[in-house]
Design a binder for these strands. Structure first.
Lengths: 202, 202
DNA sequence: TTATAATGTAATACG
DNA sequence: CGTATTACATTATT
């Protein structure tokens, strides 16, 4: 019989010839049972088998394959869900990017206008009052007539530059940006703006 | 080598049929052929079959199954890639959100300080010159001493509000936000900011 | 060791 | 051919 000990030579029974597709009735009932219990007991398998005119072995195998297929479809579902989420997030990110750029433009405009305003103020000051007060206004809480000037002078070098740098990391359509770099840039930026004395707290 | 004899399998089918799994040699060669051509011609299948001592039918089926498995693994790969991309994008979006909020804070601070500055200016003006010039400075390109005031007055109602609204849509960790809503908000915002006369273009 | 989940493979049926 | 399905086998796990 088994010439080589490895081969399970049940050649007679091993025929795949008796393979037929199950009838719709059989499959319907199997599906129904699967929804109730995806892992039936041995007793249940026998009952289902005799009810459908199948071998218990066939029923067991059908459930095994069914579970496998179910898992495959589940993965496919997860893929579609994830794909949808990705597109949503991409749109969201795109909006944020545009908004971000607009805000940067706003700040730049503000700075430019303030610079010109400052020039005029200086020009006017020079004609009348030439004393440039480096007074104690910074540590008081009451605003003075030079608030805008002080604010915008320190704003330009300390705040604006880090912002431009951090934004520079998100260029165009770079789908594969190193995540480490991003976190670093964010952390650096947070340190710069949060751990440094803020210009608006005089 | 060329055992082109057709009859090798004829009479002794039983022995050949008992072996379900192909030998490693057979599989190795099949894999090699698959890398060269995943969909071989009929002639090629016959050649491979005779070379490996298999039925052409078996070779054809092997290639079919191989293609199916290959596709499954490919889908799984795409899933992993997409997952990685999603995480990257999520981090990116998170950074943008923080940066965005920071920029909004900056603008708010600027506005607050400018308001106080404006109050002081008015207080000083009232003592000397009480005429508020709505002059033609807006259409000229040369800045005047009131640039900052004009700018910040119009900034508050026209620009700031839409920005806050659009940001409000991206709250917390809402992974399942309706994409339509977002696109709508973005479009609304773009219309508001792009199709309306900009405050810095006097 | 038995049982089975998980995975792979060969073959079949159908569109 | 591509896809789904049937049946079986192998491996790992408990």
């Amino acid at each position: 019989m088994s010439v080589s000990g490895v081969s399970t030579v049940e050649t007679r029974r091993n025929k795949n010839e008796g393979r037929k597709r199950f009838t719709d009735k059989q499959i319907s009932f199997l599906e129904y049972m699967f929804e109730t219990q995806s892992r039936p007991e041995l007793r249940m398998k026998h009952q289902v088998a005799s009810k459908l005119g199948l071998h218990p072995r066939q029923v067991a195998i059908w459930f095994q394959n069914k579970r496998a297929r179910s898992k495959s479809r589940q993965i496919e579902q997860e893929y579609n869900t994830l794909k949808h989420d990705y597109e949503t997030l991409a749109s969201k990110s795109e909006s944020l990017k545009k908004e971000n750029q607009a805000l940067l433009n706003q700040l730049e405009m503000l700075r430019d206008v303030a610079d010109r305003h400052q020039e005029n103020t200086r020009r006017l000051d020079s004609t009348g009052n030439s004393s440039i007060e480096e007074s104690d206004d910074r540590i008081t809480n009451s605003p003075t007539k030079n608030d805008a000037n002080i604010m915008l002078e320190s704003y330009s070098p300390k705040i604006s530059v880090p912002f431009y740098e951090s934004v520079a990391y998100f260029g165009e359509e770079s789908k594969f940006v190193d995540i480490e770099e991003q976190l670093c840039s964010v952390n650096d930026w947070e340190e710069t703006t949060c751990d440094v004395p803020k210009w608006w707290e005089f």
